[in-house]
Design a protein around this nucleic acid. Sequence first.
DNA 1: CGTTCAGTTGACTAAGGTCAATTCCCGTGG
DNA 2: CCACGGGAATTGACCTTAGTCAACTGAACG
Lengths: 187, 187
Amino acid sequence: MEYLKKHINNIVSLNEEEWDVLKNGIQEISCAKGDLILAEGNECDFIGIIKTGLFRFYTIKEGNEKTNEFWFPMDYFSDYRSYLTNIPSNFNIEAMRPGTMWKLKRTYMYKLYEESVNFNKLGRIVSEQLFLKKALRLDGFLKDSPKERYLQLLIKDPNILQAVPQYMIASYLGITPESLSRIRKRI
Amino acid sequence: MEYLKKHINNIVSLNEEEWDVLKNGIQEISCAKGDLILAEGNECDFIGIIKTGLFRFYTIKEGNEKTNEFWFPMDYFSDYRSYLTNIPSNFNIEAMRPGTMWKLKRTYMYKLYEESVNFNKLGRIVSEQLFLKKALRLDGFLKDSPKERYLQLLIKDPNILQAVPQYMIASYLGITPESLSRIRKRI
DNA sequence: CGTTCAGTTGACTAAGGTCAATTCCCGTGG
DNA sequence: CCACGGGAATTGACCTTAGTCAACTGAACG
């Protein structure tokens, strides 16, 4: 939890009292490989930070898994759309390995928003970070071919490449495993 | 400006004093058809709301325009990535018709963040809204074919369809004008 | 009327999707 | 230690669809 405190203080410097209040809302949770942290059809009522492990965010369409995100230690994770709108999620969050995470319930966070500038700042900055990730990813889909997206991934997210099986990377790039295999051969 | 005030009060209820402070940072600006509100290579130092008109957010890659967003009255607009990171924008913002907008400089907004909970709430909620838009759009690219994306657009954004020339819609969907024309024929 | 430009169409190419078969890799159990 | 099983990755054959380039159509505008 000390590590988390330091991390959050990099975002916004909370005083001890604020930190204590925040801490009371945070649960540390462990999970095993394959655990479903969120299942399709349920509301995502939390936002979390990965402490250890590797998680993915995926949906199933016509029998095929579509992986939307991978999360590594110190990444925020949530179905933030469901979190914000109270709409049931279309996605699953799965632990790809054993791991631990810190979770904070929406209801708790929304109470904090009424209390101080700093909690609002924290919420704002988290939201901004999540925006940036989505925006960059969308830009890739709009202007790059699958091959170019793969090359970008090689440069910008080599950690994903080495940590994740190729068929999940394919769906992360919006293509089939066979296509990714052929793209790799063409290079 | 009264209309804007009402709109913002729907997001977070500012008292008169807060509204006056905010108002002092807002400029109302008119523009002609074709005006470039932001040009590639410049930092986007503002966030705005469309009062009237129709705007688009596009970049050019290998001579082709890639339209990333369309903005209608009461939409927030900005290259929010550039706004947040102070990195020069890769995009252009163009007025597709004569119009007016309200603009707020980043520097002013960041000063407001130091002043009260409400301004932070406002910033947070704007950021959340921008996130939601991006997230939905990315989901479409991940799980839908061009044809399905077009059909979704028909259902969910008919206003775009009727307001925007087809070749821009094609690039918004991530395909060429010819392909969109053929997709429409196939339906 | 022409000019212009969006939209369509045609012919062709390139690339991804699909389905099935095969190979590769790795872990497990005999 | 080897053999086997299972899942990931690759490959092949074929299909479908998007990209490209060029020609044509049609509507809007002066």
